[in-house]
Amino acid sequence: MSSRLQAILVPVISVLLGLIAGAIVMLVSGFNPIEGYGALLRGAFGDTFYIGETIRQITPYIFAGLAVAFAFRTGLFNIGVEGQLLVGWIASVWVGLAFDLPKFIHLPMAVLAGAAAGAIWGFVPGFLKARLRVHEVIVTIMMNYIALHLVNYLVRYVISDEQNTTVAVPPSASLKSPFLENLTDFSTLHNGIFLALAAAIIFWVVLEKTTTGFELRSVGFNQHASEYAGMNVNRNIVLSMVISGAFAGLGGAMEGLGTFGYGFIHGAFSGVGFDGIAVALLGGNVAIGVILAAALFGTLKVGALNMPIESGVPTELVEIVIALIIFFVASSYIIRYLLNRYKKGAK
């Protein structure tokens, strides 16, 4: 079986297995899986309002997925998207509140502030990996929690006056779109989705069409060969983490300037960053795959909110399905093995 076909079959089979397992969980715990999944679909696409919410949820997933995928392609595992997203979120809101400028300067500045904050948060693990060979997985996990506590402190004592939320960003720094809101029956859909699609195109161009991208991928394939060919491996490692962090920070800016329009104290992580790992894996770490996987996860997440209302199934069913999809994709060795067995048997 060709590797290209397998690259498509493995994620599709994983998703199907995950959904089937979810149906079994519903059956065992006394729910009707057809009703459950029906409610999920209606909750995601039932009318224009829900479609708007679904597209809005897809936006940060695309950014989180691109962030994880970008680092993956250079052979790095960025588990720190959650933290990079948070610092990007708060940096964009901060810039949104601190300045009073016309929109064509203010909004780009706020968005870029989010990217810059995420990039800085990605630089630390990248630098430590390049210089001191410290494993980026551990550092990015630790950076997540440092971000969580730092951001909560900033919201409470620096940006707001000991409040749990900041005030809303002014219209000049907002991604909110009255046009899209009207179109979708006043959902929270905002302009961020266009930026997300643009980011996916940039991701593809940088990785596939530039020398820098070639070097980054080359380092991901084989560090020693890349070094022998005259590439600066350390520089590429840092660069990869910085760009990855910038994607994640942009995802945070979408939440800060679009979905919510303000910053608030987080008791725990939003989960978007961790879901980004699943999005990237499922999407095979390529731009179009990330968009498709983000669409699937956005649909599941938003649709899940309707499940308890219509079918009594707790929303957490979707978390279980997502976890199982990750297991199946990660265990692709066994799926490939079975596919090959099946193919041989057919001959």
């Binding site: 894996l281 957490e316 069913l317 279980i320 997502i322 990750i326």
Partner: peptide, 19 residues
Amino acid sequence: FRADQVVSGVAINFLALGL
């Protein structure tokens, strides 16, 4: 199944909380 151990660990966290 030779899955990436970090990925599998992330999935364990999701699964535990979801379930």
